[in-house]
Design a protein around this nucleic acid. Structure first.
Length: 495
RNA sequence: GCCCCGUUCGUCUAGAGGCCUAGGACACUACCCUCUCAAGGUAGCGGCACGGGUUCGAAUCCCGUACGGGGUACCA
């Protein structure tokens, strides 16, 4: 620890609150759009809207190795998707996308400026050399040290290619971060190492590019994930060294974690917003759910209209502890949103899943009128729109789908005689759901069982499954001929 | 190792010293409804990490401990 560190630095005092609110969301295009990123962008966007500010989209594509152009478009499409239906509040982003790579000269200039002012120095240490010295240090003192040891700090190295430019951290004092969510975390400057801002090949590091762009774009509030908190003091030091003006106010939002409480990662967890979209989650359900991770609307319900969230949300009220991204709960939200849809809306939303490749039937087999008749029954039974086809496929396919387990479970005992009996009745009966159901009641009674039990073999013969939408309603739609054909076909297999 | 952040039912949360016998939601269990499955309804299960303070009174304030997480790159 340093001696007698001051309680605060100008950091908190100078961060402007009278400046126009300008926030930014700065994803790096290294993969699909992360659900955590979606949440952060929503926070940014709401904050901008609430304060009459601007929301800037900036693509941080400085890591050429890992960036792929196709991800850039994907991120924008995903952002538009999560904003579906929010047009009345303004666009998904107000400015941009800006590309960090286009500002390369500004970043390099900033680095050079810092060098000229003695705020940065060139370093030609290799990682191996640094590690070696740290190992020797440990051997000599027993103290473990992993960071840069400041070896070149006072060697006045020339700016030759291959040498990295390091920021010269003033190790005196304390840097205080003005953070809306976490109070004001303090970092002793002595614990900050001289970090690289320009690589040996001359390209800027993230922290430099990020700060320079934030200054240039006059960003007033930096709302980002908690993982960035540790490098915030470095960013503030850079900001001041570059005469960036009033420091931005920060808000470090809690991480989204998996069941093991580790931060959601692109490689081991299902984090792609696009994937949830393609599975049939509704954007309004997803965004509502995302908002409840680390924050809750007033009252006893978490599922609330978006305008309520826009009104009630306070960045200051956001939690500071991580939240588990619980897909089960997301599904519950989604199911509730689906059920709240009007039947017309439900049909419209279901469209993408009613055609190939999502649907197992052809356009010729599909009958919109039949689907329409089934829609209300399907609506209460799906949690994701991609579940829609399996509830109605038997109505459009030529034969009942095959399910061995369902068959074995129901096609035993007196299934054969029940089928015989039902076939006989269905050949002449009036063809409507009530009559169809009544007939099963008669059959059940004669077999000394309950209607619920007797409908089992019929259901499997027709739909291939043991569960599904109300059977007799479906039979009415299927028609006498196709129904009888399936019943006879099933019956024949039992001989 | 060092720096930083965090800790209310299994999970997401409400809770700003007395309104808390800690509320809601998801999940789970049971029952009702019912042609299966859902949906819906009713009920139940289940929590303030621990230890010290402060206070007439603490889930709420302070300190410590434990545990969890994030960062510690010439990644972003």
């Amino acid at each position: 620890m340093t001696e007698g560190a001051p309680a605060s630095t100008p950091a908190a005092a100078t961060s402007g609150s009278l400046r126009p609110v300008r926030v930014r969301f700065a994803p790096s295009p290294t993969g699909y759009f992360h659900v955590g990123g979606a949440k952060t962008s929503l926070y940014n966007w709401i904050y901008a809207r609430q304060h009459g500010g601007a929301f800037v989209l900036r693509i941080e594509d400085t890591d050429a190795e890992r960036n792929r152009p196709e991800w850039i478009d994907g991120i924008q499409r995903a952002m538009e998707w999560i904003h579906t239906g929010l047009d009345s509040y303004g666009p998904a982003w107000d400015e941009g996308p800006y590309f960090q790579s286009h500002n390369l000269d500004r970043h390099v200039d900033a680095g050079r400026r810092l060098y000229e002012r003695g705020r940065a120095y060139y370093c030609d240490c290799t990682r191996e050399q640094i590690d070696g010295r740290n190992a020797a240090h440990k051997a000599a003192t027993g103290e473990t040290r992993t960071g840069y040891d400041g070896y070149c700090r006072d060697r006045d190295n020339p700016p030759v290619p291959g040498s990295a430019l390091r920021f010269r951290v003033d190790h005196e004092g304390v840097t205080v971060v003005d953070d809306l969510i976490r109070g004001n975390p303090e970092f002793a400057n002595a614990t900050l190492e001289d970090f690289v801002i320009l690589r040996g090949n001359g390209s800027p590091m993230f922290i430099l590019a990020n700060v320079v762009d934030d200054i240039d774009m006059r960003i007033s509030h930096v709302i980002r994930a908690e993982e960035h908190l540790p490098n915030t003091p470095k960013a503030q030091l850079l900001w001041q060294a570059l005469d960036g003006g009033p420091l931005p106010t920060f808000a470090h939002v809690p991480l989204l974690v998996n069941a093991k409480r580790q931060k959601l990662s692109k490689r081991r967890d299902p984090v792609a917003l696009e994937m949830y979209r393609d599975e049939g989650y509704l954007p309004e359900a997803m965004r509502n759910f995302l908002m409840t991770l680390g924050w809750a609307p007033q009252g006893d319900t978490e599922i609330v209209p978006w305008d309520f969230i826009m009104r009630e949300f306070r960045l200051e009220d956001v939690h500071s502890s991580p939240a588990f991204f619980d897909v089960t709960k997301l599904q519950a939200f989604n199911g509730e949103y689906i059920r709240a849809l009007s039947v017309d809306d439900f049909e419209a939303r279901a469209q993408p899943w009613l055609v190939a490749p999502h649907a197992p039937w052809t356009d010729e087999q599909f009958d919109p009128a039949v689907f329409r008749a089934m829609a209300p029954l399907v609506q209460t039974r799906v949690k994701r729109m991609n579940e829609v086809p399996e509830h109605v496929d038997f109505l459009f396919l030529d034969h009942a789908p095959h399910d061995v387990q369902a068959w074995e479970k129901t096609m035993k005992g007196d299934a054969a005689s029940i089928l015989d009996h039902v076939i006989a009745l269905y050949e002449t009966i009036e063809w409507n759901a009530d009559a169809l159901q009544h007939a099963i009641g008669v059959v059940a009674e004669q077999h000394g069982t309950k209607p619920g039990k007797a409908q089992g073999p019929i259901r499997v013969a027709i739909t291939g499954r043991t569960v599904g939408p109300p059977l007799f309603h479906a039979l009415e739609l299927l028609g006498r001929e196709r129904t009888l054909e399936r019943l006879r076909r099933a019956r024949a297999k039992l001989d």
